[in-house]
Design a protein around this nucleic acid. Structure first.
Lengths: 231, 231
DNA sequence: TACCATAATATGGCCTACCAAAATCATCCA
DNA sequence: TGGATGATTTTGGTAGGCCATATTATGGTA
């Protein structure tokens, strides 16, 4: 009862993240940040050793990542890190354009100044990260910008879809933000989204969001065809 | 080289579906067709017995269904069949509207008469199923209509997303198609999509696809609030 | 030396059995 | 009647083993 009386306030939210969830995050992270490269084999027993968990866990994790599209399973050969081809990347950007456009329109139609303010805050952090050349920060704050876009209108399902797709193109994202002028163009395009939302201009917000993703897609295509040297 | 010369042509595509895949399909099917109801607990060992497979398989299957959104995992209590609430259903329909609208627009912009022809064929089968009161057939052919819409413009990623979301609202779908007049209205709305595509009218196709999903969504909302008695 | 058959190795797919911790249920006593 | 206590159920997790297939050595023969 000590716990109930006043202990609830300091109750740890997730006292028990299961080992499986921990392992899932680790492996996903390892794929996203490039520790495992596309095409690499993910040998179950090796992963057991590296993660320090049993094969059961590893298999469940691989299954999960498979359905996320981060891992592909070759029949009779086993799991590898999924390779993203040209066309699939384009499709992912296209879906993001449609959904982010939708969310932007919904935000604009809310006519709630708090939304634009929250987005502006994220945008400032993105610019700040760009100035500091903190590319991980740029990515993180860009995600948070879009998360705000979706969560402000309670579209967590669509956010889930976007998020799911985004991890698959993460390495592309980290390249697009490093391209020439992206530190100026990117935030400018996002500012247009915020402006339209602040004006309550649904069509404008939709179009601005579409434009931003579309231009990111174009850069990604260039990167993929190797025409855009990075760093 | 014998294999390469002419053997490849008769190569069996998928000689071995793994036990896991079989079990996955079984359980998913059982959830979709209502054998397991929303909120039902899915006790691992019971499933082992019912499916005749080991816990390893069952756990992987549950993990997979969890990431599909069909199963929810209560911490320290185990997996249950996910419950679909009102709002989530609405969001799913909304996403479908955006993506199917996008696909319809792309189809229209192709100006390829074969697309409209293929869609018309699916549409005929839907109408036929309605006449025969074959509701399973209606659902199947409706899916195939949309699959055509996406695959004709090579948008298999978006189709995957739509498909993933659709299984979660499957029971709603099977209710919406049984409502009054849906046997007339539904096909009529789909015919408008096809017409717009045939005319090469991108905006029209987009709008018609949005309208169709939106009206399905409205019916689903009515069903969910219990205002629409079925059967 | 070239090549083929065979054996070893690696690995995925699948299984059984076990343990610990939490939740749930039953029981029994004050 | 209301709890404390204990038994049962179930998840989360582990260990290890078996079998089938695929790859890779290996070695012997033409």
């Amino acid at each position: 009862m000590n716990d109930d009386a006043h202990g609830a306030a300091i109750r740890v939210e997730r006292p028990t993240k299961t080992l499986r969830e921990l392992a899932l995050d680790k492996v996903r992270e390892a794929i996203i940040n490039g520790y495992f490269r596309p095409g690499d084999r993910l040998v179950e027993r090796d992963l057991c050793a590296q993660l320090g968990v049993s094969r059961t866990i590893v298999r469940e994790v691989l299954r999960h990542l498979e359905s996320e599209g981060l891992v592909a399973n070759l029949p009779n050969k086993g799991p590898i890190v999924a390779q993203l081809n040209h066309d699939e990347a384009k499709q992912i950007y296209e879906i993001r354009a449609a959904l982010e456009g939708m969310a932007a329109r919904l935000c604009a139609e809310q006519n709630n100044p708090a939304i634009a303010d929250a987005l502006d805050k994220s945008l400032e952090e993105i610019k700040h990260s760009y100035r500091e050349k903190d590319m991980a920060g740029v990515l993180a704050h860009t995600s948070s910008f879009y998360q705000t876009l979706f969560s402000m209108v309670d579209r967590h399902v669509a956010w889930g879809v976007v998020n799911l797709l985004t991890v698959r193109i993460n390495h592309l994202r980290s390249m697009t933000i490093k391209t020439q002028n992206r530190d100026v163009q990117g935030p400018a395009q996002m500012a247009r989204i915020v402006d339209a939302i602040r004006r309550g201009d649904g069509d404008g917000a939709y179009q601005a969001a579409m434009d931003h993703v579309t231009s990111a897609s174009a850069i990604a295509q260039a990167v993929l065809s190797g025409r855009q040297p990075i760093d």
